[in-house]
């Protein structure tokens, strides 16, 4: 049991972060809080990939002339780092677009609350 916790504590905490994000996206009424929940889900996913790239005793994936390239156990896995590098920028851009949509909604209806927004769209 102790070994399970020692090896997997990062995954457990990131699962918790993911669940908090899903809760914020589903239950909160404010559109800004929903966007915050989306950002938390993206962060949790990115960090799960980064944790999965870790190796015991490995160094960063930049070639060091003193360390042999033939033994892959001495370097961290570069593939998850690369994929998450693109995913971070895409996350920033989706955050920007969702902020733009929220600003547009606020300009047209003067509210960010979900129920009021439904009422005001029905009135028109």
């Amino acid at each position: 049991m102790l070994e399970l916790i020692e090896g997997h504590y990062a995954y457990f905490f990131l699962m918790l972060l993911f669940m908090i994000g899903i809760y914020a996206m589903m239950m909160k009424r404010n559109l800004m809080k929903k966007i915050m929940g989306m950002s938390m889900i993206q962060s949790a996913t990115i960090m799960v990939w980064i944790v999965s790239a870790y190796k015991d005793g490995g160094t960063i994936p930049v070639m060091d002339p003193n360390i042999s390239l033939d033994n892959p156990d001495l370097y961290l896995n570069p593939l998850p780092h690369t994929l998450m590098l693109t995913a971070i920028v895409v996350a920033v851009v989706t955050l920007g677009v969702s902020f733009a949509l929220a600003v547009s909604v606020y300009r047209n209806y003067n509210t960010l609350d979900e129920n009021e927004l439904l009422d005001r769209t029905k009135e028109q």
Partner: peptide, 10 residues
């Protein structure tokens, strides 16, 4: 320039 564009639009 993409990030600056998003900021300017908002």
């Amino acid at each position: 320039t993409g990030l600056i564009t998003i900021y300017d639009d908002i």
